[in-house]
């Protein structure tokens, strides 16, 4: 038996809107630790890792580890039917073939339940090694989204370079080139507007903007985004989900042949 009650149901709505276009089907894993997902996009270029820790739920019952295969588009459709202030409860029986999403309005005057069929998904779980990244950039998530959107009107790829000067985002296309440099800025009154650059070694990597733009659909989840880079390794773009977990996107770099 599984029963997970999330008071801030909008978090799950936002998570689904962030990943439904990147990943079609995925297994949600439920254990004592929390509710998690790891999935790749169909071309195996990007990997999504979601964790919602059990402590973040108002009620968390998971009698045994359970893996539930879901079509993310269908799950997003169902969660779209929940109000932004609704409490969302996820329920499933061990060995059952469906999952129920229950939505309660804050004053309990409306209760809805949506039942969705589960599916068998053969998924490959990848081990993500602990990595000391050469550069970690923390910046406002809206600023990062704006940069990715703007650059994608000029080119298809972004070269991200971190130096002592700051972080540079560059692209080139048929019509010309673009460079955007963000410098460290910790002097702002509001911590959510800060840009913080931790650099061990200068690093420079190229990525497909199409994927970066897809990741920025998670912008409503967090005011800040963390971009972690190391030479010849996938970049990690992380959005924290309140105090309860994270949504991380890993993207393989473009490599010179």
């Amino acid at each position: 038996m599984l029963e997970l009650r999330l008071v801030q149901g909008s978090l799950l709505k936002k998570v689904m809107e962030s990943i439904k276009d990147l990943v079609n089907d995925a297994n949600f894993d439920c254990s004592a630790t929390g509710f998690s997902l790891q999935a790749m996009d169909s071309s195996h270029v990007a990997l999504v890792s979601l964790l919602l820790r059990s402590e973040g739920f108002e009620h968390y019952r998971c009698d045994r580890n359970l893996s539930m295969g879901m079509n993310l588009g269908n799950m997003a459709k169902m969660l779209k039917c929940a109000g932004n202030d609704d409490i969302v409860t996820i329920k499933a029986d061990d060995g059952g073939d469906c999952v129920t999403f229950m939505f309660e309005s804050p004053n309990q005057d409306k209760i809805a339940d949506f039942e969705m069929k589960l599916m068998d998904i053969d998924s490959e779980h990848l081990g993500i090694p602990e990595t000391e990244y050469e550069a970690i950039v923390r910046m406002p998530s809206s600023e990062f989204a704006r940069i990715c959107k703007d650059l994608s009107t000029i080119g298809d790829t972004v070269l991200i370079s971190v130096t002592k000067e700051g972080v540079r985002f560059s692209t080139k296309g048929d019509i010309g080139t673009a460079n955007i440099v963000c410098r460290q800025n910790t002097s702002v009154d509001k911590p959510e507007e800060a840009t913080i650059i931790e650099m061990e070694t200068p690093v420079s990597l190229t990525f497909a903007l199409r994927y970066m733009n897809s990741f920025t659909k998670a912008t409503p989840l967090a005011t800040q985004v963390t971009v972690s880079l190391s030479s010849e390794l996938p970049v990690v773009v992380e959005y924290k989900i309140g105090e309860m977990g994270y949504l991380r996107f890993y993207l393989a770099p473009k490599i010179e042949e």
């Binding site: 195996h44 270029v45 779980h125 990848l126 081990g127 090694p129 497909a208 996938p234 890993y250 770099p253």
Partner: peptide
């Protein structure tokens, strides 16, 4: 043009 890497060449199956 640089070639798109595959995530499975960085992270191994467990």
């Amino acid at each position: 043009d640089p070639k798109q890497g595959n995530i499975m060449s960085f992270f191994k199956k467990v």
